[in-house]
Simulated scan of single mutants.
Amino acid sequence: MADSTSTHSDNTYDNTIPRFDSLLKAVNALSNRSISSLDDVDLQPVSGGDINEASLLTIGDSNQQVFLKQNTIEKAPVLEAEVEGLTAIRATGARTCQPLAFGIDNERGRSFLLLSVIHAFKGSNAHAQEGWHDLASQLATLHQAQPPQPPQPDNPDNFDNNQHSKWYAGWFDDNFIGSSPQRNSWTANWHEFFASQRLGAQSQMAFDNQRINRQTLQQIERIQHKLEQLLPNYPLTDEAGQPRPSLLHGDLWAGNAMLGQSADNSEDKALGYLIDPAVYVGHPETDLALTQLFGGFTSEFYDAYLEHGLVQDGFTERVDIYNLYHYLNHLNLFGSGYLNAVQRIAQRFGS
């Protein structure tokens, strides 16, 4: 068994933005004038998400806009995990929205997250293609950056040092994949991490909830046991030449990436943004595989990403193994519509 550390450890990404005990206080902290009531702000509902209530918030007569996500108090950890993920992505230099304020408003019975606004690109198709190139560059920037790591004995006070005796997959806390819990205990072996905390966690849940039968569960268990033969090691290496992982977006389907306007709202330039992450540290191919699950990414995106040298031979044969995790998650969340995909992959690789 590979070494594993505690799920929870010091996380520099969890206290990086202001926190408030009311939405009104948070809005006032961001406003250029005093707001006495939330009635003084314009809230326009935004469609597209099924986990949080999303709105575009315009403050007073200044037309100052921020993006607001709200949920129940019980679901505050979902929003807090998003803060950590966005902050970690921004730390690599990859482009995403900026968390502005987070809090729990007990009087309103709501948790909330305020974010900078990304205006969707509305220019020509030709300029949109350039935006897909830029999105690929943002993803490569994320993957090429040295990932955060837990404290290690050779340097216990610094988990971002250049040299490690071991490289770990995982994250400082468990977070969420959609609305499902996502386990992230730091693990020194990538294949073991993916086996136990991705395939194992979801397949056991599916079996316990009678979503899959024992035969399918056993096929997935066989896949778990031979991941070292099915999946490659990391494509990047550290200064000592040993393979090292990447920080991952974690939930990169088409709805969690977008082309936005440039700062001057020019329709001549589209910029790529990575949004709504479920971050952890692991193999970059997992992100690229998920982009293919529900479509929406262009050939220009893939061509541009391939130029960064992060995709190894045989990737197309591995896409289903990576995405089995997400098919299982969707089976657990939404039911039998995803069963055929789970059974097909389980039989192909686990028979």
Rank of each mutant, 00 (worst) to 15 (best):
L227K: 02
G131W: 02
P277M: 03
S62L: 07
D303P: 00
Q70F: 03
D238A: 12
Y280F: 15
E300H: 10
E130K: 13
S4I: 13
S6G: 11
S9Q: 12
F121T: 08
I223P: 00
T7G: 00
V27D: 03
G309L: 10
V281A: 01
T96L: 04
E192D: 14
L248G: 03
E307K: 10
H164I: 05
P245I: 04
E300K: 07
A91D: 14
H191R: 06
A145N: 01
I51T: 09
D50A: 14
E82Q: 13
N256R: 07
G109M: 06
S9H: 15
N11C: 15
L248H: 05
G337F: 01
E80S: 13
V83P: 06
W171K: 01
S111A: 15
G170Y: 08
A206N: 00
W190I: 10
H119Q: 14
P45S: 13
L274T: 04
R244T: 04
Q146K: 12
W132L: 00
A304N: 08
D3S: 13
T5E: 07
T286F: 07
D160I: 12
R211F: 01
A289H: 03
K25C: 06
A81P: 07
T16K: 14
A206H: 00
L227H: 03
Q65F: 06
A81Q: 02
L333I: 11
Q224W: 02
N11P: 02
I35S: 00
S62Y: 07
I321T: 04
T7R: 09
G49Y: 12
M205K: 06
D105A: 09
R344H: 12
L252M: 12
A29P: 01
S266C: 08
G241F: 04
F294M: 06
F349H: 11
P151L: 05
S351H: 11
D40S: 13
A126Q: 12
K69N: 11
F112W: 09
S47W: 03
T216L: 02
E107Q: 15
K75T: 11
L86D: 03
S266K: 11
L139Q: 06
D39G: 14
D264E: 12
N256Y: 11
A2R: 09
F193P: 02
G260D: 08
D157Y: 11
N175P: 04
F297S: 07
A206K: 00
Q138Y: 03
Q182N: 13
F67W: 13
V41C: 14
G49Q: 10
H119V: 14
A341F: 02
I89H: 02
F207Q: 01
R211C: 09
F112G: 03
R19L: 04
F172N: 09
P45M: 08
R110I: 15
Q98L: 12
F176V: 09
P148Q: 09
L43D: 08
Q210L: 07
G335W: 02
A88W: 10
L100S: 08
A128I: 04
R19A: 15
S124H: 10
H191G: 00
G170N: 04
I212V: 10
A254T: 13
L247K: 05
Q129S: 11
D39E: 14
I118D: 03
Q347I: 05
G178V: 07
L142M: 14
